[in-house]
Nucleic acid binder design. Structure first.
Length: 262
DNA sequence: ATGGTGGGTTCCCCA
């Protein structure tokens, strides 16, 4: 008799955890995910809004900075073996990585560098940063364990992940080098869990505020992902994009994505 | 259309 696992793991780029509290708190109450990986929390750990989230029964592990970036893991069970940042980083490095083991599942939560524009300095930084993530995954995450690498990857896999693929051809979030960097992260044995369950095009997780892409006919991209090891893929029964959370008053520009392991 | 909107901070940056 093994342990019965029934676990909803969510990922959500909230674009400021403090600004998003009026959406995050009711969403936690409604969806009650067991684990929530947040990105772009945009605050120092000492001002992370712990109380209202703890009141809903969540442990909080956060790794933030002022203004930019910031990640957190909320979990109903106590997280173990928490890691913050990439190996060898200095104190001033971007806060983009937090990991933990929750109920035996090895979770790695990433806010991947955006990269601004193909060929820019930030683009080079993105590729180099993703290379370091690949190193971490290859050396510290055994593929015979349940491994879930999730977050905002700022990379699409193929044309199905892009509302207007010809407009985005070889642009940021869609270039071959970014996709190769994704493939390198996944090389030890991770798969795109969403595509195990859904082959359809037009399934997006991010819509640009500036072009009003959500309101103007679902003009989005799929850039928030669940990469899973074979035992996690085996346990994963569905991956759903919660479009409702992208609608309404003061949403983030990203929808949450929820994976169920059973 | 090299913008647009939104969040955080500072008189602009990042997405």
């Amino acid at each position: 008799m093994g342990i019965v696992l029934l676990m909803d793991i969510a990922t959500w780029n909230v674009n400021s955890v403090r600004a998003r509290l009026p959406r995050l708190l009711p969403w936690l109450e409604q969806r009650r995910p067991d684990v929530v990986c947040l990105q772009e929390t945009k605050c120092l750990d000492e001002v992370f809004p712990r109380e209202p989230i703890e009141d809903l029964g969540y442990h909080i592990e956060c790794f933030g900075q002022k203004t930019y970036n910031g990640v957190a893991i909320l979990s109903k069970s106590t997280p173990e073996d928490v890691i913050r940042g990439l190996p060898g980083e200095g104190e001033d490095a971007d806060k983009r990585v937090i990991g933990a083991i929750v109920d035996g599942v090895m979770i790695l939560n990433l806010y991947v560098v955006n990269g601004k524009e193909v060929g820019s300095d930030k683009y080079a930084y993105k590729l180099e940063w993703m290379d370091r993530v690949a190193e971490l995954v290859a050396s510290n995450y055994p593929m015979d364990e349940k491994v879930v690498v999730t977050g905002d990857f700022n990379v699409t896999f193929d044309d199905r992940d892009i509302a207007e693929p010809d407009l985005w051809r070889n642009k940021i979030l869609c270039s071959e080098a970014e996709r190769a960097a994704m493939a390198k992260i996944m090389e030890p044995g991770l798969s795109d869990a969403f595509r195990v369950h859904c082959e359809e095009e037009g399934q997006f997780t991010w819509w640009d505020f500036r072009t009003r892409g959500f309101q103007r006919g679902n003009r989005g991209l799929r850039i928030d992902h669940f990469l899973m090891s074979p035992p996690a893929i085996e346990a994963c029964t569905q991956v759903m994009i919660d479009r409702e959370a992208r609608d309404g008053e003061k949403p983030s520009d990203h929808a949450p994505v929820i994976a169920t392991l059973s």
